[in-house]
């Protein structure tokens, strides 16, 4: 009985946290980046300072912790399939590729995007030149994660519903 609850609860948390994470990733990439560029180019407009000051820190807070929660719930969900998945054994290679993509994305969030955003937001001392570099690195890494999310979500779904592709 207890063992039947664990996968259900883990999957529920995995979906909730995953939607929060990837939803914010798509917000950053499909909405905010263009909005900030437009606001900065809008002479006489209100500018992007409000977004940078009030929206970005909150969005990044939910983004990075949701990323971690998604991974932990995913690892719990894999349970005994964790090692076969990550070593791409047999049919577990399908979820394994999804898990690797999600893991790489998590490492990019905590190892690249967040440290660079701390410089951009002024939470970590940086010169203007360092901030400009950090902004570009964070932007491109965020774009890489958006690209990676496309196969990642296919492989996540295909692990249980991939008959059409993988038999």
């Amino acid at each position: 009985m207890e063992n039947e609850w664990v996968p259900l609860i883990a999957r529920w948390i995995h979906f909730l946290a995953g939607i929060t994470w990837i939803g914010l990733l798509y917000y950053f990439n499909f909405v905010q980046a263009a909005a900030v560029a437009t606001a900065n180019a809008d002479q006489g407009g209100p500018g992007a300072a409000g977004i940078t000051k009030y929206v970005v820190p909150r969005a990044l807070l939910w983004f990075r912790w949701a990323a971690l929660a998604t991974w932990i719930a995913g690892a719990a969900l894999l349970g005994p399939r964790f090692m076969p998945a990550f070593t791409l054994q047999g049919s577990d290679a399908v979820i394994g590729i999804g898990a690797w993509l999600g893991t790489i994305m998590l490492l990019f969030v905590w190892g690249v995007i967040w440290p660079n955003q701390k410089k951009v937001l002024g939470l970590k001392p940086a010169t203007d030149a360092e901030k400009a570099t950090a902004r570009r690195v964070a932007f491109l890494t965020s774009r890489v994660n958006t690209a990676l999310s496309i196969p990642m979500l296919l492989f996540m779904g295909a692990s249980a519903h991939g008959v059409a592709l993988f038999g």
């Binding site: 990439n29 047999g90 290679a93 690209a147 196969p151 296919l154 993988f166």
Partner: peptide
């Protein structure tokens, strides 16, 4: 050459190409 990741369309196309590559890899593995 322009970085495809600078545009949303380029990012999505990059993701789709990567998907095709990884599906081929997965089919070879299983």
């Amino acid at each position: 050459m322009k970085n495809p990741l600078d545009s949303i369309l380029g990012t999505i196309i990059t993701g789709l190409v990567l998907t095709l590559v990884l599906v081929a890899v997965a089919k070879a593995l299983i």
